[in-house]
Design a protein around this nucleic acid. Sequence first.
DNA 1: TCTGGGGTCCTAGGACCC
DNA 2: TCTGGGGTCCTAGGACCC
Length: 395
Amino acid sequence: MARVIVHIDLNAFFVRCEEIKNPALENKPVAVGREGRAGIVSTCSYEARKFGVCSGMPTFKAKSLCPQLILMPGDYRFYSVMSKTFFKFIRRYTKFVEVASVDECFADFTEAIKGQKDVVGFFRQMQLDLYKETQLKCSIGVSITKFLAKMASDFKKPMGLTIIRKSEIKKYLFPLKIEAMYGIGKKTAPRLRSLGINTIGDLYDRIVKQEKQTIELLGKSEGVIRDWLEGRGSDEIELERDDPKSIGNSTTLPYDTDDYLVIDKYLVDLAQEVSFRAKKEDKLGYTVQIVVKDQGFKSHNKSHTLENPFNDWNTIYQQAKQLFQTNFNSLTVRLVGITLQNLIDLKEMAVQMSLFDYEKYEEESTTKLLINEINRSLKKPLLKRASEVDKNEHR
DNA sequence: TCTGGGGTCCTAGGACCC
DNA sequence: TCTGGGGTCCTAGGACCC
């Protein structure tokens, strides 16, 4: 039996939060984004969109399209509070909620709507209740897989409600422009267009016919897309999505430079920030990656993996520094970033360490620090010093 | 005045081991 | 003699999403 999978998307979330704080902003062209050389619009109101403003656009360009645009710097603490309030509200209906980002989630409503005669009325009421309680506006998509629910929630904004039954996939999705397909971005869409594929329906036809050029272009995702468009694909709600696979920070410099002394200061800051966040999450990593964007906006990555995991800022910094100096010494840099990868949980680490010949590692300073960290995080020491273990055993 | 900053996943080549 | 094939890890780069 098919499940009822719902995607709920908060409309113009950051801007809506600003309107909640200051209702005078309602019905005006508003955008959240920084001013300055690297400022871009992260969200904008529907009024601003009428002028051609959209997210991702440089703020100076948005201003030129819409001179009366009200630009807000962003109050991310408040957004976070509102975001949590939203998820709490949805969890009153079902415990199967998958947080997809600050302003959207998937949820399994199979049980929640059991016995409901008027499904449309049920979700409409939920949408109104959310608005009444939090003043947040949302669009709701209802279907049988996450992909279809996500596509459905995109149909009408703001305050949309769209239900796509399995028999209605063709009717709803096939006429849509290829750019509207989740997973097809700004690189793949033009390539598909050049093959004469303009709509999702066109794409499906080519896949069914196994047309060579299309299949080659899509690679492995061909099968995934076919499944999606035939009503298969994931309907699993992942409850725990809070386990990060990497922790990174990056920053666009105030001006492009090839002066390492300038860049070094940023590497120190970034290493400290990454270390701080990793420690907060009780994570260690084996690999440091640096990202550099050059004047032409092209990215370059270099990474290095060490034998033992770490999360202290100095190790991160030293690795980053070395990677930078050996690879990018004469490059003119626009942005630098540091990411800690190959993460391992401190507790997992403790278990692994206890299986090891612990004495062998005792001399290495990183490992010593690590053991202190583990003991600190577990409050009670889990690992005793090797010498103490010996003493206890002879007692 | 062209383009943030946080991520995830995939691909492909080379090293290395057996 | 001059070259197998499978598996895994590391690294670089690219596409995509919010």
